[in-house]
Nucleic acid binder design. Structure first.
Lengths: 122, 122
DNA sequence: TTTCTTGTGTCATATATTTAGTACAATAAT
DNA sequence: ATTATTGTACTAAATATATGACACAAGAAA
């Protein structure tokens, strides 16, 4: 799994998103132990402080928790994960609809373009 | 038309996007004269320097041009506008598809959720 | 001509972000 | 008991972003 970071937004914000994506997609399982901050940072080619900042934010949202000297783990609260996933999906549905609607595209166009892209990917 | 600015990304980046959105949606017409930087900045509740930075970027992309002492205008290059619109739309199609796909949603789900949201808006 | 408006440039300052380096406490591993 | 690993905290420095306050040149408007 890759860490694709752009330069047009704060890195730690992008790290929060990618970590969240990995949790709600199931790539990281509930209760799973994460790699240490320093290694995660190395993987993402980022400063440990920056990764720490991202993890602190996920902790604030209860998606991960730290056991001092032992390591950091994904939450076991499956309901929270499901809820977060739902919010994440809704956000993207809204964004897509609103951006396309603002350009004058209607529902049919949105679906059509989506289908075309899907075929392109296959 | 409102200037909705979030705090999680550089403001001038968001200004570039909003201005581009207004151009490719036809809200600003080809050749149309824009309000002076200072007024646009006031509208968006932003510092003139920040608005200037955004306009300079649009100028770099040839979407607007400045006539020194007279004002700033939208390009008359309809083809460039159409091309930019196409790119903008493709970007959102891709983003939506890839984000949802990463969460395990398939094409049918993507369409279903989109339809639901569309009804919600009506 | 004089005045006003335009885009543009510069300087200073404040804040946010990112990296680098270091250090510490707690506990697991030896 | 000693060592290594963990999260965490702190300082310093570099860069990016945003605002504020000016100033200037060139053309439009008076």
């Amino acid at each position: 799994m890759e860490w694709e970071l752009q330069s047009d937004r704060p890195i730690y914000t992008q790290l929060v998103e990618e970590l969240k994506r990995r949790i709600i997609s199931g790539y990281y399982r509930p209760g799973e132990k994460l790699l240490p901050v320093r290694e995660l940072a190395q993987e993402a080619k980022v400063n440990p402080n920056t990764m720490q900042k991202a993890l602190a934010e996920l902790e604030r949202q209860n998606l991960v928790f730290a056991v001092r000297t032992t390591g950091r783990y994904i939450t076991e609260d499956a309901e929270l994960i499901a809820e977060t996933k739902k919010e994440f999906a809704s956000f993207h549905v809204q964004t897509y609809y609103r951006e396309m609607h603002a350009l004058g595209y209607g529902k049919e166009n949105m679906i059509e373009l989506l289908s075309e892209y899907e075929e392109e990917c296959r």
